[in-house]
Nucleic acid binder design. Structure first.
Lengths: 312, 312
DNA sequence: TTGAAAGCGTTACCAA
DNA sequence: TTGGTAACGCTTTCAA
């Protein structure tokens, strides 16, 4: 709304003085920011890399800036980080899962910005949500092992955050249905997941229950450890041991044999999660939330196979 | 500086009203923020996960908040993000490498906050720097292949950002020294690194130069692809083909055979980089920068071996 | 220890 | 179109 000559003159001075507008002053005066806060439990974890990719792709040409904060699977840290983010009056918040502390949940509900919960499926979102069912996916994976003819499946889990717990519940329930549940084949640890941990847990399990004929792993890292250690021990996979992972990370298809796993829609969660949030921010009138459930697909690869005669 | 009774009364009201201090107003009034901006080229890349772990460990009990932004290997995006970060008047900035655009470099030099450049070693840091030499590490890796007796080594590289270019230069120079340089054994692509890409590039290379007897890969992802594909093709690794990676990611030690690679000090870069920055912020009087070069170690595993009789 | 008041650098609004 | 002037919600300083 200024004449060209004035604009030119101003721009010249801006250049000469190296002027940069002050974000704090701008935020204070306008009562708005371009900040989208993103809370993730881990960045070491390959799982979130894809989610981030989706978010970046979606946010590329928007006026928003995504600020990632990592609460390292600590609910208290998460609570504290939500508080810090809220001080900045973000335009929106993306949080991982449904398992915040009561205090954190209250802050999210009271926040005067839109909130989207990602990576899980829950009954009662704070506002928006997009994710997939860890429980149902684990049921699918377990039923697949049974359909292949494996009869003594085990569960390997690390860290056991709430989503991992739901996967274990899915495994357990699917087995109980058929009367094949054996709690002594469940191995979990609070340590954080890694390939190395997978090899260890596998060694422990096999030493203790050598007749185990299938393993559902909490995630692909663990499963890769199992597969690689099985290879070193000349185990016949999938003939004598079926292995199924969770997530479908990039390496999973390249292992020998390829890893059967649950392909979780991480990219879409990130991309569509951001888009939902953006839409909600842009149309504040329609204040109602929205809950999106994405499918997670079982991908059958060489680490499981229909056995001709069940090993039972 | 208030009496207990007043403090109590205030805190009660704070609680009742759900008061949260406004970060923008605070920043504006105090002319300070608790923000440390961290610019990384990728988060998909496992490489930065360790750096982040180091930074988080170092920042845990400090008043600072680390804000990660991802410029996706785009120097222009990096420049733009530096500008956005600077608007926020950060307490400090951590940037990846030495290869910013001239404009970006100028902004960093003009910034009225401390800056640390991480992950590389360069002559002329903006302020602080901590990293390791990609060139020297690649020379080490290449010499190791030669010392093993491999005589026709190839280079596989993806994305080829500036640090990858320096690795290629190290490879090239180490070979030229011994008169063994063969440019037709260099395969690079602008695509981003992945295990799948490693298998592809390996297939291309072997089809074109079947007598190749060693491969130095730009990073462990590519190397893992080579190893896994070599396994499928029943290549004798390390007997007929030596493979060396770069970075020493977690999976590398667990592959069969284990991957010989350069262990880069990523955790330390993150941890010490943050500490250097913090120290510099706290003692503004000593305005001089500091340059730290960390060693990167060759880790010999099963994918290379001293050959009894060189294959030449 | 408390209270009052003057900025901080923008945005938003109104009058010219 | 332009210029002027209140906010915005803190921190800082100074006086009481």
């Amino acid at each position: 709304m200024v004449s060209d000559k004035v604009r030119e003159r101003v721009l010249a001075v801006v250049e000469r003085l190296g002027y940069v507008p002050d974000a704090a002053a701008s935020a204070l005066a306008s009562k708005r920011t371009d900040l989208i806060g993103l809370l993730v439990p881990s960045l070491t974890n390959n799982v979130f890399a894809e989610v981030l990719r989706g978010i970046y792709d979606a946010s590329e040409d928007t006026p928003f800036n995504v600020q990632i904060v990592n609460f390292r699977y600590s609910p208290l840290k998460e609570e504290q980080l939500i508080r810090t983010l809220l001080r900045q009056k973000p335009a929106g918040l993306m949080v991982t899962g449904f398992d915040q502390t009561a205090e954190a949940r209250a802050m999210l509900e009271g926040a005067d910005c839109r909130v989207v919960q990602i990576m899980d499926s829950g009954d009662d979102p704070v506002d928006l949500s997009i994710g997939f069912s860890h429980y149902a996916s684990a049921v699918d994976a377990t039923r697949h092992l049974l359909a292949c003819g494996y009869r003594r499946p085990a569960f390997l889990g690390a860290r056991m955050d709430p989503r991992s717990q739901r996967r274990l519940a899915g495994f357990t329930d699917a087995l109980k249905e058929t009367g094949m549940f054996d709690p002594t084949r469940i191995v979990t640890t609070p340590q954080s997941s890694s390939i190395g941990l997978g090899t260890q847990l596998f060694a422990d399990l096999i030493a203790r229950r050598p007749d185990t004929d299938a393993i559902f792993c909490n995630n692909d890292d663990l499963a890769a450890g199992v597969l690689l250690e099985a290879q070193r021990r000349y185990f016949d996979v999938p003939g004598k041991l079926g292995v199924c992972g969770f997530n479908d990370l990039e390496f999973s298809r390249h292992l020998n044999p390829g890893l059967t796993t649950i392909a979780t829609p991480r990219y879409d969660v990130g991309r569509r999660g951001f888009e939902m949030l953006r839409t909600a921010i842009d149309t504040p009138d329609e204040a109602q939330g929205g809950k999106v459930d994405l499918p997670a697909q079982l991908v059958e690869r060489g680490s499981t196979r229909r056995l001709d005669s069940p090993s039972a």
